[in-house]
Write a protein that binds this DNA or RNA. Sequence first.
RNA 1: CGGAGUGUGGCUCAGUCUGGUAGAGCACCGCGUUCGGGACGCGGGGGUCGCAGGUUCGAAUCCUGCCACUCCGACCA
Length: 439
Amino acid sequence: MRLSRYFLPVLKQNPAEAQIASHRLMLRAGMLRQEAAGIYAWLPLGYRVLRKIEQIVREEMDRAGAIEVLMPTLQLADLWRESGRYDDYGAEMLRITDRHERELLYGPTNEEMITEIFRAYVKSYKELPKNLYHIQWKFRDEQRPRFGVMRGREFLMKDAYSFDVDDERGQQSYNRMFVAYLRTFQRMGLQAAPMRAETGPIGGDLSHEFIVLAQTGESAVFLDRRMLDLPVPGEDVDYEGDLSGIVADWTRLYAATEDVHDPARYERETAEADRLTARGIEVGQTFYFGDKYSRPMKANVSGPDGVERPVQMGSYGVGVSRLAGAIIEASHDEAGIIWPDAVAPFGVGIVSLRPGDAAVDAACERAYAALTATGKEPLLDDTDERPGGKFATMDLIGLPWQLIIGPRGLADGVVELKRRRTGERRTLPLDEALAAISA
RNA sequence: CGGAGUGUGGCUCAGUCUGGUAGAGCACCGCGUUCGGGACGCGGGGGUCGCAGGUUCGAAUCCUGCCACUCCGACCA
Protein backbone atom coordinates (compact mmCIF):
# COMPACT_ATOMS: atom_id res chain seq x y z
CA MET A 1 0.00 0.00 0.00
CA ARG A 2 1.16 3.49 -0.83
CA LEU A 3 0.47 5.96 1.94
CA SER A 4 -0.36 8.67 -0.58
CA ARG A 5 -3.38 6.62 -1.63
CA TYR A 6 -4.26 5.23 1.78
CA PHE A 7 -6.60 6.55 4.47
CA LEU A 8 -4.61 7.06 7.63
CA PRO A 9 -5.91 10.02 9.65
CA VAL A 10 -3.28 10.26 12.38
CA LEU A 11 -3.67 12.78 15.17
CA LYS A 12 -0.76 14.77 16.52
CA GLN A 13 -2.54 15.63 19.71
CA ASN A 14 -4.06 13.33 22.27
CA PRO A 15 -7.85 13.19 22.19
CA ALA A 16 -9.16 14.48 25.51
CA GLU A 17 -11.43 11.53 26.21
CA ALA A 18 -8.83 8.79 25.88
CA GLN A 19 -7.36 7.98 29.27
CA ILE A 20 -5.58 4.69 28.67
CA ALA A 21 -2.76 3.91 26.29
CA SER A 22 -4.56 1.64 23.88
CA HIS A 23 -7.53 3.96 23.42
CA ARG A 24 -5.29 6.98 22.98
CA LEU A 25 -2.98 5.24 20.53
CA MET A 26 -5.78 3.69 18.50
CA LEU A 27 -7.33 7.12 18.02
CA ARG A 28 -4.01 8.80 17.30
CA ALA A 29 -2.94 6.11 14.85
CA GLY A 30 -6.14 6.53 12.88
CA MET A 31 -7.43 3.05 13.70
CA LEU A 32 -10.75 4.02 15.22
CA ARG A 33 -13.51 6.58 15.12
CA GLN A 34 -15.97 6.77 17.97
CA GLU A 35 -19.56 7.05 16.72
CA ALA A 36 -21.35 6.81 20.07
CA ALA A 37 -20.48 5.74 23.60
CA GLY A 38 -18.81 2.34 23.28
CA ILE A 39 -19.49 2.12 19.54
CA TYR A 40 -16.66 2.50 17.06
CA ALA A 41 -16.01 2.56 13.36
CA TRP A 42 -12.86 0.65 12.47
CA LEU A 43 -10.78 2.71 10.08
CA PRO A 44 -8.51 0.96 7.56
CA LEU A 45 -5.47 0.51 9.77
CA GLY A 46 -7.54 -0.72 12.69
CA TYR A 47 -9.57 -3.02 10.52
CA ARG A 48 -6.44 -4.69 9.15
CA VAL A 49 -5.35 -5.47 12.71
CA LEU A 50 -8.79 -6.71 13.65
CA ARG A 51 -8.80 -9.08 10.68
CA LYS A 52 -5.36 -10.44 11.56
CA ILE A 53 -6.46 -11.15 15.11
CA GLU A 54 -9.66 -12.73 13.86
CA GLN A 55 -7.73 -14.94 11.47
CA ILE A 56 -5.40 -16.26 14.16
CA VAL A 57 -8.40 -17.07 16.34
CA ARG A 58 -10.04 -18.80 13.39
CA GLU A 59 -6.99 -20.87 12.52
CA GLU A 60 -6.58 -22.11 16.08
CA MET A 61 -10.26 -22.92 16.41
CA ASP A 62 -10.14 -24.88 13.18
CA ARG A 63 -6.99 -26.68 14.26
CA ALA A 64 -8.72 -27.74 17.47
CA GLY A 65 -11.58 -29.23 15.48
CA ALA A 66 -14.18 -26.49 15.84
CA ILE A 67 -16.38 -25.70 12.83
CA GLU A 68 -17.17 -22.15 11.80
CA VAL A 69 -20.72 -20.92 11.28
CA LEU A 70 -22.22 -17.43 11.26
CA MET A 71 -25.28 -16.64 13.31
CA PRO A 72 -27.18 -13.36 13.00
CA THR A 73 -26.79 -10.38 15.31
CA LEU A 74 -30.56 -10.20 15.85
CA GLN A 75 -32.39 -12.93 17.73
CA LEU A 76 -35.98 -13.60 18.66
CA ALA A 77 -36.97 -12.86 22.23
CA ASP A 78 -38.99 -16.08 22.33
CA LEU A 79 -35.81 -18.11 22.00
CA TRP A 80 -34.44 -16.48 25.11
CA ARG A 81 -37.66 -17.09 26.97
CA GLU A 82 -37.01 -20.81 26.56
CA SER A 83 -33.86 -20.62 28.64
CA GLY A 84 -35.33 -18.10 31.05
CA ARG A 85 -32.66 -15.54 30.29
CA TYR A 86 -34.86 -13.01 28.50
CA ASP A 87 -35.98 -11.59 31.81
CA ASP A 88 -32.80 -12.37 33.72
CA TYR A 89 -30.47 -10.47 31.44
CA GLY A 90 -31.76 -7.03 32.36
CA ALA A 91 -30.90 -3.67 30.90
CA GLU A 92 -27.65 -4.88 29.34
CA MET A 93 -29.68 -6.53 26.63
CA LEU A 94 -30.63 -4.24 23.77
CA ARG A 95 -34.25 -5.01 22.94
CA ILE A 96 -35.81 -4.14 19.60
CA THR A 97 -39.31 -4.35 18.20
CA ASP A 98 -39.84 -4.80 14.47
CA ARG A 99 -42.72 -3.45 12.35
CA HIS A 100 -44.82 -6.52 13.14
CA GLU A 101 -44.37 -5.94 16.85
CA ARG A 102 -42.13 -8.97 17.09
CA GLU A 103 -39.73 -8.69 19.99
CA LEU A 104 -36.10 -9.02 18.96
CA LEU A 105 -32.81 -8.46 20.67
CA TYR A 106 -29.29 -7.67 19.54
CA GLY A 107 -27.43 -10.76 20.70
CA PRO A 108 -25.09 -10.40 23.66
CA THR A 109 -24.12 -14.08 23.26
CA ASN A 110 -25.45 -17.11 21.42
CA GLU A 111 -26.01 -20.09 23.72
CA GLU A 112 -29.72 -20.18 23.01
CA MET A 113 -29.42 -19.89 19.26
CA ILE A 114 -26.68 -22.47 18.88
CA THR A 115 -28.65 -24.86 21.07
CA GLU A 116 -31.70 -24.29 18.88
CA ILE A 117 -29.66 -25.06 15.76
CA PHE A 118 -28.08 -28.10 17.32
CA ARG A 119 -31.32 -29.66 18.55
CA ALA A 120 -32.93 -29.23 15.13
CA TYR A 121 -30.44 -31.56 13.48
CA VAL A 122 -28.47 -33.68 15.91
CA LYS A 123 -30.22 -36.61 17.56
CA SER A 124 -27.55 -39.25 18.12
CA TYR A 125 -24.36 -39.63 20.10
CA LYS A 126 -22.82 -40.95 16.89
CA GLU A 127 -22.64 -37.40 15.53
CA LEU A 128 -20.73 -36.17 18.57
CA PRO A 129 -18.55 -34.51 19.56
CA LYS A 130 -19.34 -31.28 17.76
CA ASN A 131 -17.97 -27.82 18.34
CA LEU A 132 -19.51 -24.92 16.44
CA TYR A 133 -18.20 -21.38 16.60
CA HIS A 134 -18.66 -18.03 14.98
CA ILE A 135 -17.03 -14.64 14.98
CA GLN A 136 -19.76 -12.04 15.14
CA TRP A 137 -20.57 -8.63 16.57
CA LYS A 138 -22.25 -8.62 19.94
CA PHE A 139 -24.00 -5.87 21.83
CA ARG A 140 -24.12 -5.43 25.57
CA ASP A 141 -25.56 -2.16 26.76
CA GLU A 142 -22.89 -1.51 29.37
CA GLN A 143 -23.76 0.97 32.07
CA ARG A 144 -20.48 2.65 31.53
CA PRO A 145 -18.54 1.90 28.39
CA ARG A 146 -14.94 3.04 28.57
CA PHE A 147 -11.36 2.36 27.61
CA GLY A 148 -12.13 2.39 23.87
CA VAL A 149 -12.51 -1.09 22.43
CA MET A 150 -11.58 -2.68 25.75
CA ARG A 151 -15.06 -2.08 27.10
CA GLY A 152 -17.25 -1.21 24.19
CA ARG A 153 -20.96 -1.82 23.95
CA GLU A 154 -20.63 -3.29 20.49
CA PHE A 155 -17.73 -5.70 20.21
CA LEU A 156 -16.48 -8.52 18.04
CA MET A 157 -16.39 -11.86 19.79
CA LYS A 158 -15.51 -15.38 18.87
CA ASP A 159 -17.84 -17.75 20.65
CA ALA A 160 -17.57 -21.52 20.39
CA TYR A 161 -19.99 -24.10 21.73
CA SER A 162 -19.15 -27.74 22.41
CA PHE A 163 -21.64 -30.61 22.43
CA ASP A 164 -20.88 -34.00 23.93
CA VAL A 165 -22.73 -37.11 24.92
CA ASP A 166 -21.48 -37.24 28.48
CA ASP A 167 -19.56 -35.35 31.08
CA GLU A 168 -16.24 -37.07 30.51
CA ARG A 169 -16.20 -36.25 26.80
CA GLY A 170 -17.47 -32.78 27.59
CA GLN A 171 -14.40 -32.22 29.74
CA GLN A 172 -12.24 -33.37 26.85
CA SER A 173 -13.87 -30.78 24.60
CA TYR A 174 -13.22 -28.19 27.27
CA ASN A 175 -9.57 -29.19 27.33
CA ARG A 176 -9.28 -28.79 23.57
CA MET A 177 -10.51 -25.20 23.79
CA PHE A 178 -8.24 -24.55 26.76
CA VAL A 179 -5.20 -25.62 24.76
CA ALA A 180 -6.36 -23.74 21.67
CA TYR A 181 -6.56 -20.57 23.78
CA LEU A 182 -3.03 -20.99 25.06
CA ARG A 183 -1.87 -21.20 21.45
CA THR A 184 -4.07 -18.37 20.20
CA PHE A 185 -2.79 -15.77 22.63
CA GLN A 186 0.81 -16.83 22.30
CA ARG A 187 0.63 -16.42 18.54
CA MET A 188 -0.40 -12.81 19.08
CA GLY A 189 2.70 -12.19 21.16
CA LEU A 190 0.81 -12.13 24.44
CA GLN A 191 1.50 -13.72 27.78
CA ALA A 192 -1.85 -15.07 28.89
CA ALA A 193 -2.54 -16.94 32.08
CA PRO A 194 -5.62 -19.07 32.70
CA MET A 195 -7.24 -18.34 36.03
CA ARG A 196 -10.06 -20.13 37.71
CA ALA A 197 -13.15 -18.00 37.38
CA GLU A 198 -16.63 -17.42 38.64
CA THR A 199 -19.16 -18.49 36.07
CA GLY A 200 -21.50 -15.51 36.31
CA PRO A 201 -24.75 -15.36 34.35
CA ILE A 202 -23.65 -17.95 31.79
CA GLY A 203 -23.62 -20.53 34.56
CA GLY A 204 -21.91 -23.83 35.11
CA ASP A 205 -19.28 -25.12 37.44
CA LEU A 206 -15.99 -25.16 35.50
CA SER A 207 -14.60 -21.97 34.06
CA HIS A 208 -11.34 -20.21 33.38
CA GLU A 209 -10.58 -16.64 32.48
CA PHE A 210 -7.59 -16.06 30.25
CA ILE A 211 -5.81 -12.97 31.46
CA VAL A 212 -3.25 -11.08 29.41
CA LEU A 213 -0.57 -9.52 31.52
CA ALA A 214 -0.10 -5.82 30.83
CA GLN A 215 1.16 -3.10 33.12
CA THR A 216 -1.91 -1.01 32.41
CA GLY A 217 -4.39 -3.86 32.83
CA GLU A 218 -7.75 -3.13 34.36
CA SER A 219 -7.50 -5.51 37.30
CA ALA A 220 -4.89 -6.81 39.67
CA VAL A 221 -3.89 -10.45 39.39
CA PHE A 222 -1.86 -12.68 41.69
CA LEU A 223 -0.01 -15.62 40.26
CA ASP A 224 2.88 -18.00 40.58
CA ARG A 225 5.47 -16.59 38.22
CA ARG A 226 6.55 -20.08 37.20
CA MET A 227 3.38 -20.24 35.13
CA LEU A 228 4.96 -17.77 32.72
CA ASP A 229 7.70 -20.29 31.94
CA LEU A 230 5.36 -23.14 31.09
CA PRO A 231 5.69 -24.32 27.48
CA VAL A 232 2.76 -23.50 25.20
CA PRO A 233 1.75 -26.52 23.09
CA GLY A 234 3.06 -26.36 19.54
CA GLU A 235 1.28 -26.63 16.22
CA ASP A 236 1.70 -30.37 16.37
CA VAL A 237 -0.32 -30.78 19.56
CA ASP A 238 -2.59 -33.82 19.24
CA TYR A 239 -6.14 -32.61 19.75
CA GLU A 240 -7.37 -36.17 19.37
CA GLY A 241 -5.20 -37.30 22.25
CA ASP A 242 -5.34 -36.76 25.99
CA LEU A 243 -4.84 -33.09 26.81
CA SER A 244 -5.57 -33.36 30.50
CA GLY A 245 -1.87 -33.30 31.39
CA ILE A 246 -1.38 -29.98 29.65
CA VAL A 247 -4.42 -28.50 31.34
CA ALA A 248 -3.28 -29.84 34.68
CA ASP A 249 0.12 -28.21 34.26
CA TRP A 250 -1.49 -24.88 33.49
CA THR A 251 -4.00 -25.02 36.34
CA ARG A 252 -1.78 -26.44 39.09
CA LEU A 253 -0.06 -23.19 39.99
CA TYR A 254 -1.86 -20.44 41.83
CA ALA A 255 -3.34 -17.70 39.65
CA ALA A 256 -6.29 -15.51 40.55
CA THR A 257 -7.89 -12.20 39.73
CA GLU A 258 -8.43 -9.89 42.65
CA ASP A 259 -12.13 -10.65 42.98
CA VAL A 260 -11.48 -14.32 43.78
CA HIS A 261 -8.02 -13.91 45.28
CA ASP A 262 -7.42 -15.94 48.43
CA PRO A 263 -4.32 -14.51 50.15
CA ALA A 264 -4.04 -17.35 52.66
CA ARG A 265 -4.05 -20.00 49.97
CA TYR A 266 -1.70 -17.93 47.83
CA GLU A 267 0.86 -17.74 50.60
CA ARG A 268 0.46 -21.42 51.43
CA GLU A 269 0.89 -22.65 47.85
CA THR A 270 3.36 -20.19 46.42
CA ALA A 271 6.86 -19.54 47.70
CA GLU A 272 7.49 -15.88 48.32
CA ALA A 273 10.05 -15.67 45.53
CA ASP A 274 7.52 -17.04 43.04
CA ARG A 275 4.69 -14.66 43.92
CA LEU A 276 3.93 -12.18 41.18
CA THR A 277 1.44 -9.39 41.53
CA ALA A 278 0.62 -7.95 38.15
CA ARG A 279 -2.15 -6.31 36.21
CA GLY A 280 -4.19 -8.07 33.59
CA ILE A 281 -6.86 -7.86 30.96
CA GLU A 282 -9.39 -10.61 30.41
CA VAL A 283 -9.37 -11.64 26.76
CA GLY A 284 -11.14 -14.97 26.89
CA GLN A 285 -13.24 -17.18 29.08
CA THR A 286 -14.11 -20.85 28.92
CA PHE A 287 -17.16 -22.43 30.54
CA TYR A 288 -18.28 -25.98 30.96
CA PHE A 289 -21.92 -25.92 32.03
CA GLY A 290 -23.28 -29.35 31.18
CA ASP A 291 -27.03 -29.33 30.56
CA LYS A 292 -27.82 -25.80 31.77
CA TYR A 293 -29.25 -24.85 28.37
CA SER A 294 -29.82 -28.23 26.77
CA ARG A 295 -32.20 -29.36 29.51
CA PRO A 296 -34.67 -26.45 29.44
CA MET A 297 -34.38 -26.22 25.66
CA LYS A 298 -34.76 -29.96 25.20
CA ALA A 299 -31.59 -30.48 23.18
CA ASN A 300 -31.42 -34.23 23.66
CA VAL A 301 -29.36 -36.92 22.02
CA SER A 302 -29.72 -40.67 22.15
CA GLY A 303 -26.86 -42.54 23.77
CA PRO A 304 -25.59 -46.03 22.89
CA ASP A 305 -28.20 -47.42 25.27
CA GLY A 306 -30.99 -45.83 23.25
CA VAL A 307 -31.90 -43.46 26.07
CA GLU A 308 -32.33 -39.75 25.27
CA ARG A 309 -30.52 -37.33 27.52
CA PRO A 310 -29.57 -33.62 27.41
CA VAL A 311 -26.38 -32.93 25.48
CA GLN A 312 -23.45 -31.71 27.57
CA MET A 313 -22.30 -28.26 26.57
CA GLY A 314 -19.55 -25.73 27.06
CA SER A 315 -19.02 -22.25 25.65
CA TYR A 316 -15.78 -20.49 24.89
CA GLY A 317 -15.43 -16.78 24.20
CA VAL A 318 -12.60 -14.62 22.93
CA GLY A 319 -12.91 -10.85 22.80
CA VAL A 320 -11.55 -10.26 19.32
CA SER A 321 -11.97 -6.49 19.25
CA ARG A 322 -10.82 -6.24 22.86
CA LEU A 323 -7.64 -8.07 21.89
CA ALA A 324 -6.67 -5.20 19.60
CA GLY A 325 -6.63 -2.97 22.64
CA ALA A 326 -5.06 -5.57 24.91
CA ILE A 327 -2.16 -6.11 22.53
CA ILE A 328 -1.44 -2.39 22.54
CA GLU A 329 -1.65 -2.23 26.32
CA ALA A 330 0.92 -5.02 26.46
CA SER A 331 3.13 -3.59 23.73
CA HIS A 332 3.72 0.14 23.33
CA ASP A 333 6.09 2.92 24.35
CA GLU A 334 6.03 6.71 24.53
CA ALA A 335 6.28 7.04 20.77
CA GLY A 336 3.45 4.71 19.90
CA ILE A 337 2.33 1.17 19.25
CA ILE A 338 4.74 -1.75 18.88
CA TRP A 339 2.90 -4.45 16.95
CA PRO A 340 3.88 -8.07 17.33
CA ASP A 341 4.69 -9.33 13.82
CA ALA A 342 1.69 -11.67 13.66
CA VAL A 343 -0.92 -8.93 14.03
CA ALA A 344 0.86 -5.90 12.52
CA PRO A 345 -1.35 -4.11 9.99
CA PHE A 346 1.60 -3.93 7.61
CA GLY A 347 4.84 -5.87 7.95
CA VAL A 348 7.23 -3.07 7.11
CA GLY A 349 7.08 0.67 6.53
CA ILE A 350 9.23 2.01 3.73
CA VAL A 351 10.08 5.64 4.36
CA SER A 352 10.99 7.62 1.28
CA LEU A 353 12.91 10.62 2.52
CA ARG A 354 12.83 12.35 -0.84
CA PRO A 355 9.98 11.46 -3.15
CA GLY A 356 10.80 12.78 -6.60
CA ASP A 357 14.50 12.01 -6.33
CA ALA A 358 15.14 9.49 -9.07
CA ALA A 359 17.49 7.27 -7.11
CA VAL A 360 15.29 7.31 -3.99
CA ASP A 361 12.15 6.56 -6.00
CA ALA A 362 13.85 3.69 -7.78
CA ALA A 363 15.13 2.15 -4.56
CA CYS A 364 11.74 2.53 -2.88
CA GLU A 365 9.95 0.92 -5.78
CA ARG A 366 12.40 -1.95 -5.82
CA ALA A 367 11.96 -2.50 -2.08
CA TYR A 368 8.20 -2.21 -2.39
CA ALA A 369 8.01 -4.77 -5.17
CA ALA A 370 10.35 -7.21 -3.44
CA LEU A 371 8.58 -7.00 -0.08
CA THR A 372 5.18 -7.29 -1.70
CA ALA A 373 6.34 -10.39 -3.55
CA THR A 374 7.47 -12.05 -0.32
CA GLY A 375 4.18 -11.30 1.43
CA LYS A 376 5.61 -8.73 3.82
CA GLU A 377 2.79 -6.28 3.10
CA PRO A 378 4.83 -3.07 2.93
CA LEU A 379 3.40 0.38 3.53
CA LEU A 380 5.34 2.88 1.42
CA ASP A 381 5.37 6.43 2.73
CA ASP A 382 5.63 8.25 -0.60
CA THR A 383 4.06 11.45 0.69
CA ASP A 384 5.89 14.76 0.61
CA GLU A 385 5.73 15.23 4.34
CA ARG A 386 9.00 16.14 5.98
CA PRO A 387 11.23 13.38 7.34
CA GLY A 388 10.56 14.16 10.99
CA GLY A 389 6.85 13.74 10.55
CA LYS A 390 7.31 10.49 8.67
CA PHE A 391 9.46 9.02 11.42
CA ALA A 392 6.95 10.06 14.06
CA THR A 393 4.07 8.52 12.13
CA MET A 394 5.95 5.26 11.61
CA ASP A 395 6.76 4.98 15.30
CA LEU A 396 3.16 5.81 16.15
CA ILE A 397 1.57 3.16 13.94
CA GLY A 398 4.18 0.69 15.14
CA LEU A 399 5.03 -1.44 12.12
CA PRO A 400 7.66 -4.04 13.06
CA TRP A 401 10.24 -2.79 10.56
CA GLN A 402 11.10 0.60 9.13
CA LEU A 403 13.13 0.74 5.94
CA ILE A 404 14.42 4.28 5.54
CA ILE A 405 15.61 5.29 2.12
CA GLY A 406 17.12 8.68 1.41
CA PRO A 407 19.54 10.37 -0.98
CA ARG A 408 22.43 10.60 1.49
CA GLY A 409 22.45 6.90 2.21
CA LEU A 410 21.95 5.91 -1.38
CA ALA A 411 24.97 8.00 -2.37
CA ASP A 412 26.94 5.59 -0.20
CA GLY A 413 24.96 2.61 -1.44
CA VAL A 414 23.10 2.05 1.85
CA VAL A 415 19.70 2.39 3.49
CA GLU A 416 18.69 2.33 7.14
CA LEU A 417 16.75 -0.53 8.71
CA LYS A 418 15.07 0.01 12.05
CA ARG A 419 13.43 -2.58 14.25
CA ARG A 420 10.54 -0.88 16.02
CA ARG A 421 10.51 -3.11 19.07
CA THR A 422 14.16 -2.69 20.03
CA GLY A 423 14.88 0.61 18.35
CA GLU A 424 17.95 -1.05 16.82
CA ARG A 425 19.09 0.64 13.59
CA ARG A 426 21.41 -0.76 10.99
CA THR A 427 22.92 0.94 7.97
CA LEU A 428 23.39 -1.55 5.15
CA PRO A 429 22.88 -2.11 1.43
CA LEU A 430 19.26 -2.42 0.31
CA ASP A 431 19.54 -6.07 -0.65
CA GLU A 432 20.88 -6.98 2.76
CA ALA A 433 18.08 -5.02 4.41
CA LEU A 434 15.48 -6.86 2.35
CA ALA A 435 17.06 -10.16 3.29
CA ALA A 436 17.08 -9.21 6.98
CA ILE A 437 13.38 -8.35 6.91
CA SER A 438 12.53 -11.66 5.29
CA ALA A 439 14.79 -13.70 7.57
C1' C B 1 -26.89 3.12 38.92
C1' G B 2 -24.47 6.89 42.66
C1' G B 3 -20.85 11.08 42.38
C1' A B 4 -18.12 14.84 39.45
C1' G B 5 -17.53 17.32 34.93
C1' U B 6 -17.56 18.86 29.72
C1' G B 7 -20.15 20.38 25.04
C1' U B 8 -16.97 26.75 20.82
C1' G B 9 -14.04 24.75 12.87
C1' G B 10 -11.14 17.97 11.86
C1' C B 11 -7.85 18.02 16.85
C1' U B 12 -6.19 20.59 21.56
C1' C B 13 -8.18 24.70 23.92
C1' A B 14 -9.13 30.28 25.26
C1' G B 15 -13.40 33.45 25.50
C1' U B 16 -18.71 32.49 29.70
C1' C B 17 -17.75 35.00 36.17
C1' U B 18 -18.51 40.97 34.27
C1' G B 19 -23.95 40.21 27.59
C1' G B 20 -21.94 44.25 22.52
C1' U B 21 -22.02 40.79 16.11
C1' A B 22 -16.30 34.46 17.60
C1' G B 23 -10.31 33.68 18.67
C1' A B 24 -5.27 30.93 19.14
C1' G B 25 -2.11 26.66 18.06
C1' C B 26 -2.18 22.28 15.14
C1' A B 27 -4.52 20.35 10.67
C1' C B 28 -6.37 22.01 5.53
C1' C B 29 -5.73 25.15 0.47
C1' G B 30 -2.22 28.54 -2.60
C1' C B 31 2.79 30.63 -3.32
C1' G B 32 7.85 30.79 -1.81
C1' U B 33 12.08 29.25 1.12
C1' U B 34 13.20 24.53 3.26
C1' C B 35 13.93 19.06 3.77
C1' G B 36 17.94 12.54 7.67
C1' G B 37 13.63 12.67 13.95
C1' G B 38 6.78 16.45 14.15
C1' A B 39 10.44 23.69 9.70
C1' C B 40 9.38 28.92 8.41
C1' G B 41 7.18 33.31 5.83
C1' C B 42 3.04 35.51 3.24
C1' G B 43 -1.97 34.86 1.69
C1' G B 44 -6.63 31.99 2.23
C1' G B 45 -10.97 28.65 3.37
C1' G B 46 -13.78 26.52 7.15
C1' G B 47 -17.74 27.46 13.11
C1' U B 48 -26.46 26.94 13.39
C1' C B 49 -20.71 28.33 19.97
C1' G B 50 -24.87 20.50 21.75
C1' C B 51 -30.58 21.30 21.11
C1' A B 52 -35.13 23.92 22.38
C1' G B 53 -37.50 27.75 24.84
C1' G B 54 -37.01 32.32 27.74
C1' U B 55 -34.88 37.30 29.48
C1' U B 56 -32.76 41.53 26.71
C1' C B 57 -32.19 46.80 21.99
C1' G B 58 -28.51 42.85 21.75
C1' A B 59 -26.91 36.02 24.20
C1' A B 60 -21.21 31.48 23.15
C1' U B 61 -21.94 34.41 27.76
C1' C B 62 -27.79 35.14 31.98
C1' C B 63 -32.40 31.72 33.17
C1' U B 64 -35.33 26.99 32.36
C1' G B 65 -35.75 22.25 30.19
C1' C B 66 -33.70 18.45 27.28
C1' C B 67 -29.73 15.71 24.78
C1' A B 68 -24.88 13.89 24.12
C1' C B 69 -20.17 12.70 25.78
C1' U B 70 -16.18 12.08 29.48
C1' C B 71 -14.06 10.92 34.28
C1' C B 72 -14.30 8.40 39.53
C1' G B 73 -17.00 4.44 41.94
C1' A B 74 -20.30 -0.08 41.98
C1' C B 75 -21.19 -3.88 37.80
C1' C B 76 -19.34 -6.79 33.25
C1' A B 77 -16.58 -10.81 26.90
